[in-house]
């Protein structure tokens, strides 16, 4: 397997009905670490992640992985801000990504049970996914994204409806994944979480990358007034 990274983003723009959702973005992501995308509501975090993952239309510019596009695509997973629940049991939801790849049913179901246990849904494997609570849905979505052991995992506010304990458990899982080489690119509104997980921070404002750099210097002394205001919890002008 070749390296996916560096990921080069050049002048990338994503529009929807004439409105620029995000961009133009210039960015280079290296092979290691966890990138945390932060910014106010409507700044374009979701749009950026979707554009990088390749499910939002790229209207201008280029996004190049260090390997063929279809291979890159296969090695990524995405956890959506509003998790998508297939109308099946929790177990079948977890097994789905493997079944699509042609994994035999028994094997896929066994891994599904294993991942249900890991994300803390062991008690609910037989429930229809559509009756899960908001937090349980997020856990399911994370398990379903990790079951393919992706090399790149996009997460769009994956812990927004989780309680403190579940958040820590999920962060644990994410940190283990990161330690074993999964590249995480996630957005969050939880600055505590951003500090705990980030090795680099991408601060986005009005669809543009406002600040991008290693996490520690960013949290200790942001370069721009807007980032400082955002970290203080003030209104960002």
């Amino acid at each position: 397997m070749s390296d996916l990274f560096p990921l080069k983003v050049e002048q990338a723009v994503s529009r929807r009905r004439g409105k620029v959702l995000v961009g133009p973005v210039d960015l280079t992501l290296k092979a290691r670490g966890t990138t945390v995308v932060i910014g106010p509501n409507g700044a374009g975090k979701t749009s950026l992640l979707r554009m990088l993952h390749g499910i939002a239309r790229l209207n201008a510019g280029k996004i190049t992985w260090n390997c063929p596009q279809d291979e890159a695509q296969r090695r990524q997973s995405f956890v959506f801000q509003t998790p998508v629940m297939l109308r099946r049991s929790v177990r079948d939801n977890l097994a789905y990504p493997l079944r699509v790849l042609g994994t035999p049913r028994a094997d896929a179901l066994q891994q599904a049970d294993d991942w249900a246990e890991r994300v803390g849904l062991g008690y609910a494997v037989n429930r229809p996914a559509t009756v899960l609570s908001g937090g349980e849905r997020q856990k399911l979505a994370i398990g379903r994204a990790l079951i393919r052991s992706p090399d790149v995992l996009f997460l769009d506010e994956p812990c927004s409806s989780l309680d403190g304990r579940a958040t820590r458990e999920i962060e644990d899982i994410l940190q283990k994944a990161a330690a074993s080489g999964t590249r995480l690119i996630m957005s969050t509104h939880d600055m505590g979480q951003a500090r705990r997980l980030a090795s680099e921070v991408l601060f986005i404002l009005g669809g543009k990358v406002h600040e991008f750099g290693p996490a520690t210097p960013f949290f200790e002394g942001p370069q721009t007034a807007q980032a400082r205001a955002f970290l203080r919890g003030d209104i960002v002008e």
Binding site: I55, Q73, Q76, V84, L86, Y96, V100
Partner: peptide, 18 residues
Amino acid sequence: LWSDYHDLLISMNTTHIQ
């Protein structure tokens, strides 16, 4: 149903048949 599933199934690189 498809508008529900769209993003997920596209993201997982499923074929049209799937």
